[in-house]
Amino acid sequence: MAKVYFGMVVSLDGFVNDQNGGIQKLYASYKPTEEILAERENVGAVVLGRNTFEMASNPDDYADNYEYQVPLFIMTHTPPAKHPKENDNLTFTFVTDGIESAISQAKKAAQEKDVVVLGANVSHQLLKAGLADELQITLAPILLGKGLRLFEHLEDLEIQLEKLRTFETAQQVEIWYKIIRKS
């Protein structure tokens, strides 16, 4: 069954970037497991935050190099002046009317496949709107001390989780959780 989930690499102390906004230290030892690569095969659309989208030095590179060659939905207040290069599989839709609209459009584009959400701010919106089915956390072997915490600004939200699976390598641990919906 298709699901909506978000995935993030975080430091052991809970940060998704360092004090300068960089993510390189988190990904220094990151190697996707065979299981993660298999999960990617079932992704039919991706929702990205604008900050995550802009991490590419050249947005046109997405069409040739991005790991997900599927429709991309970018959450933003203002679409870029120049539309990035697309290909037969990867297209861009800039969504300005909220997370509910982005997820709805992504589900439609994904058909029976999964929708993955990337970016801390968008993940917060996803959780607050109750639209996530699962979350995937990869623990990077580093303590950053400062930066942006993944679960910052969720003080008024309590979410129960059920561990689904764990993948371990020599350098990382990936944990998948199901989000338990309160009846």
Rank of each mutant, 00 (worst) to 15 (best):
L144R: 02
R149W: 07
K163A: 03
D156S: 08
T52R: 02
I180G: 10
P32E: 11
E54G: 05
R40I: 00
L157I: 14
L48N: 04
V116C: 02
I180W: 13
E112V: 07
I74M: 03
L127F: 06
L150E: 09
L90R: 08
A109V: 05
T91H: 08
F6W: 02
A81E: 15
V46C: 01
R181I: 15
V173Q: 04
H124A: 13
A109K: 05
Y5M: 09
E100R: 12
S29I: 00
Y27I: 11
E174Y: 05
A140V: 03
I137W: 03
G147R: 02
N17W: 06
T33I: 09
N51V: 11
V115F: 11
Q24M: 06
N42G: 09
E162T: 13
K107V: 04
G21I: 09
G130F: 08
G98W: 07
Q160G: 14
N20K: 15
S11D: 06
E162D: 15
L26F: 06
Y66C: 06
Q69D: 14
P71L: 03
G130H: 09
L118N: 03
F6D: 01
L127N: 01
G119H: 00
L157K: 12
E41H: 10
A132H: 04
A132Q: 05
G98A: 08
T93L: 04
I180N: 13
Y68S: 09
N121M: 11
L48I: 08
R165Y: 11
L118D: 05
T52K: 01
Q125D: 14
T138C: 00
P59L: 01
P141W: 01
Y5W: 14
V117W: 04
L127R: 00
A102T: 04
Q105S: 07
R50E: 10
A109E: 04
T33K: 07
G98M: 11
V43T: 14
R165C: 08
F92C: 08
V9G: 01
N51P: 03
E134K: 12
W176R: 10
I36W: 04
D114R: 04
E162P: 07
K85N: 10
P141F: 01
V70H: 02
E39L: 00
D114N: 11
T96H: 00
T52H: 04
F94V: 03
A110I: 14
T169E: 03
G44K: 08
T93H: 12
K3N: 07
T33M: 07
V16R: 01
G119L: 02
V10Y: 02
G98Y: 08
L72D: 05
N89W: 10
W176M: 13
Y177E: 06
I180H: 12
L161S: 05
Y68D: 09
V47I: 11
S11C: 07
E67V: 07
L154P: 00
V16Q: 01
L90I: 13
A56P: 11
Y66G: 06
Y5C: 05
K163V: 08
T169S: 07
P32H: 09
I23V: 15
L148P: 05
G147C: 07
R181C: 12
S101W: 07
A38Q: 01
K107C: 03
P32K: 07
P32Y: 10
V47M: 06
T93S: 14
R181H: 15
N20E: 15
V122W: 03
M75R: 04
L157W: 10
L126G: 01
